[in-house]
């Protein structure tokens, strides 16, 4: 019996971490699909969302309204970076856009350090968030943060699916992602489509930032770095530029990490978790660049 309980516990862990990766990876993929831009500053939108939530709470707002503020602020930050940093280099070679995004990450993280100092700050949570559920004499435990992470991610992904499939703006996004030139040609307002993409992606990152901070208990200016790298791996494993790919990749990566960590200790592999993950990334890039879902990597003219 204890084997089954162990597996269940690990499954909960995998779903919880995997859904966070999926949430961040989806945003990376949306933006990549439109602009062929790997938006490294995406991780910093997590930081912005978490800090905004923190300060809204310190200003006296309740937890949930503060989270609302955090999501709005991160969405706004996404609009600003698009307008200020990415729009001027749109249409430039991919490398220019990539370097812009790396530079932007450094600027945002150092701005964060300047404003908030680099030391982690306590992220206040209402007691109900930490409420623990315990089964099978404590061999299976999870708390409301785990439940919320999974539930919120599922809701966000359902919303996204509805948005891109059923709304007219979503149709424009899919069209522009497929052929930006043809989208211009049929009179689509491509600027608006791109702004909407940044709003969605950054709001998702804000949500992920709050959930990440809730799990860690602290916020810090460089908190977005690790989840960004992991989400990047997830997006590539699943198939970069595809929303379903990002979701699949996120959960696969979460499961894999938990699996590596739960391997028997005498195998001695768990300390190398991240090394193994990045080795997998390289393997995918070499042998299956389209990812699990086999996304076409077409060269745009």
């Amino acid at each position: 019996m204890s084997d089954l309980e162990y597996v269940l516990q690990q499954l909960i862990n995998a779903l919880s971490i995997g859904s966070l990766y999926a949430l961040v990876a989806v945003g990376l993929s949306i933006i990549f699909s439109l602009l062929r831009l790997t938006n490294f500053a995406h991780g910093d939108m997590m930081m912005v969302g978490a800090f905004a939530t923190l300060f809204a709470q310190l200003a006296g707002l309740g937890f949930l309204p503060a989270v609302g503020v955090g999501i709005l602020v991160s969405a706004l930050a996404g609009v600003i970076i698009e307008r200020v940093a990415y729009r001027p280099v749109r249409g430039a070679p991919d490398v220019t856009m990539l370097l812009t995004s790396v530079a932007l990450t450094y600027i945002l993280e150092n701005l964060g350090i300047l404003l908030f100092s680099s030391s982690p700050r306590n992220f206040p949570l209402p007691d109900w968030m930490n409420h623990l559920y315990s089964f099978a004499d404590g061999r299976i435990t999870f708390n409301n943060i785990n439940l919320l992470t999974l539930g919120v991610t599922l809701l966000a992904l359902l919303f996204l699916n509805w948005f891109v499939r059923r709304t007219q703006v979503g149709l424009g996004m899919r069209a522009a992602a497929e052929d930006l030139t043809a989208a211009h040609l049929v009179g689509l307002d491509v600027n608006r489509v791109i702004v909407v993409a940044f709003v969605l992606a950054s709001a998702f990152a804000g949500v992920a930032g709050v959930l990440w901070a809730a799990q860690a208990g602290v916020v810090e200016p460089q908190m977005g770095f690790t989840p960004l790298l992991k989400a990047f791996v997830a997006a590539i494993i699943g198939g970069f530029g595809s929303i379903p790919g990002a979701i699949v990749g996120g959960f696969v990566l979460g499961a894999l990490e938990v699996l590596i960590q739960s391997l028997p200790g005498d195998w001695g592999l768990s300390p190398y978790r991240d090394a193994l993950v990045f080795a997998l990334l390289i393997a995918f890039l070499l042998f299956r660049p389209g990812g699990i879902l086999g996304v076409r990597q077409e060269v745009k003219l």
């Binding site: 703006v169 149709l171 069209a175 497929e178 030139t181 709003v199």
Partner: peptide
């Protein structure tokens, strides 16, 4: 230069939204 992964109807709707705009 079609949107090849979109459905036939969606391709035409993508063109039609120019005359029937909807904001976010």
């Amino acid at each position: 230069r079609l949107f090849k992964n979109l459905s036939v109807l969606e391709n035409v709707r993508a063109g039609a939204q120019l005359r029937y705009p909807v904001n976010l």
